[in-house]
Lab assay of single mutants.
Amino acid sequence: TIDDAFRAIERAIQAENEGRYREALKHFLDGGEMIVTAAEKEASQKVRNLLLHKGKEVLEWAEHLAEWILE
């Protein structure tokens, strides 16, 4: 659900702030994927587009974090 997705993102932010970057990455990926999944089930085109945009933002952040971890 969207609530689960945002809880995962909150955990990711907390982990990132505490320097637990790999854990943060996992939570960002989980949250982003949950948002995209919820968007695919959404009946309203406007809400679907907003959710897809937010999911994409979260997944892009996860990608940047992963690249930073690997440096």
Score class of each variant (00 low, 15 high):
residue 15 A to E: 05
residue 28 F to C: 05
residue 10 E to R: 15
residue 13 I to T: 03
residue 63 E to V: 13
residue 42 E to N: 07
residue 56 K to T: 04
residue 25 L to V: 10
residue 21 Y to F: 09
residue 47 V to M: 14
residue 28 F to W: 15
residue 1 T to Q: 07
residue 69 I to P: 01
residue 2 I to Q: 02
residue 61 W to Q: 03
residue 22 R to M: 13
residue 8 A to P: 00
residue 11 R to E: 05
residue 13 I to N: 02
residue 28 F to A: 06
residue 48 R to S: 03
residue 35 I to R: 00
residue 67 E to H: 12
residue 44 S to F: 12
residue 21 Y to H: 04
residue 35 I to S: 02
residue 41 K to M: 10
residue 46 K to S: 11
residue 12 A to T: 00
residue 15 A to W: 04
residue 63 E to T: 13
residue 59 L to Q: 06
residue 69 I to K: 00
residue 71 E to P: 05
residue 18 E to W: 09
residue 66 A to N: 06
residue 30 D to H: 11
residue 17 N to V: 12
residue 3 D to F: 14
residue 50 L to E: 07
residue 14 Q to V: 10
residue 45 Q to I: 13
residue 9 I to V: 06
residue 52 L to F: 08
residue 68 W to Y: 09
residue 29 L to I: 11
residue 41 K to C: 10
residue 21 Y to V: 04
residue 56 K to N: 05
residue 44 S to R: 08
residue 16 E to T: 14
residue 48 R to G: 02
residue 1 T to S: 10
residue 35 I to T: 02
residue 32 G to N: 08
residue 32 G to D: 01
residue 14 Q to C: 10
residue 34 M to K: 08
residue 26 K to A: 09
residue 9 I to D: 00
residue 66 A to V: 05
residue 15 A to S: 04
residue 51 L to V: 01
residue 8 A to W: 10
residue 35 I to V: 03
residue 54 K to T: 08
residue 45 Q to A: 11
residue 9 I to Q: 00
residue 30 D to L: 15
residue 59 L to K: 03
residue 67 E to Y: 11
residue 11 R to P: 00
residue 58 V to A: 08
residue 62 A to T: 03
residue 23 E to R: 04
residue 52 L to S: 03
residue 32 G to E: 03
residue 4 D to T: 05
residue 42 E to I: 14
residue 53 H to P: 01
residue 33 E to T: 14
residue 27 H to T: 03
residue 32 G to T: 09
residue 3 D to V: 13
residue 33 E to H: 15
residue 32 G to F: 15
residue 59 L to R: 07
residue 6 F to C: 13
residue 23 E to K: 02
residue 21 Y to M: 05
residue 62 A to L: 07
residue 12 A to I: 04
residue 57 E to H: 11
residue 1 T to K: 07
residue 22 R to Y: 14
residue 31 G to T: 04
residue 6 F to P: 00
residue 42 E to F: 12
residue 6 F to M: 09
residue 48 R to C: 12
residue 49 N to D: 10
residue 67 E to C: 13
residue 50 L to N: 05
residue 59 L to E: 01
residue 29 L to E: 02
residue 69 I to T: 02
residue 2 I to S: 04
residue 34 M to C: 07
residue 33 E to Y: 14
residue 36 V to L: 15
residue 6 F to I: 09
residue 53 H to E: 11
residue 59 L to N: 03
residue 27 H to K: 04
residue 28 F to T: 01
residue 8 A to N: 05
residue 31 G to P: 01
residue 2 I to R: 03
residue 10 E to G: 12
residue 25 L to D: 01
residue 63 E to H: 14
residue 64 H to R: 12
residue 16 E to C: 15
residue 18 E to C: 12
residue 53 H to S: 13
residue 7 R to H: 07
residue 27 H to Q: 07
residue 20 R to V: 02
residue 45 Q to F: 08
residue 68 W to F: 07
residue 1 T to L: 15
residue 62 A to S: 02
residue 62 A to K: 00
residue 51 L to P: 00
residue 46 K to W: 15
residue 19 G to V: 01
residue 2 I to V: 09
residue 58 V to S: 01
residue 17 N to D: 04
residue 42 E to M: 13
residue 16 E to L: 15
residue 69 I to C: 11
residue 37 T to R: 15
residue 12 A to C: 11
residue 37 T to C: 12
residue 62 A to M: 08
residue 59 L to Y: 08
residue 40 E to T: 14
residue 58 V to H: 00
residue 60 E to R: 12
residue 65 L to R: 00
residue 19 G to R: 04
residue 58 V to Y: 08
residue 62 A to V: 07
residue 50 L to V: 06
residue 7 R to M: 06
residue 67 E to Q: 13
residue 64 H to T: 08
residue 14 Q to L: 09
residue 27 H to D: 06
residue 60 E to G: 08
residue 67 E to N: 13
residue 21 Y to K: 01
residue 9 I to W: 05
residue 36 V to S: 05
residue 20 R to E: 03
residue 21 Y to N: 01
residue 36 V to Y: 09
residue 40 E to N: 13
residue 55 G to W: 14
residue 60 E to Q: 11
residue 31 G to D: 02
residue 43 A to C: 13
residue 33 E to C: 13
residue 5 A to H: 01
residue 55 G to N: 03
residue 28 F to H: 00
residue 27 H to S: 06
residue 8 A to S: 05
residue 9 I to S: 00
residue 59 L to G: 01
residue 71 E to Y: 11
residue 62 A to Q: 02
residue 42 E to T: 11
residue 39 A to Y: 06
residue 27 H to V: 03
residue 7 R to S: 06
residue 66 A to C: 15
residue 61 W to N: 02
residue 54 K to Q: 05
residue 4 D to Q: 09
residue 48 R to N: 01
residue 59 L to P: 00
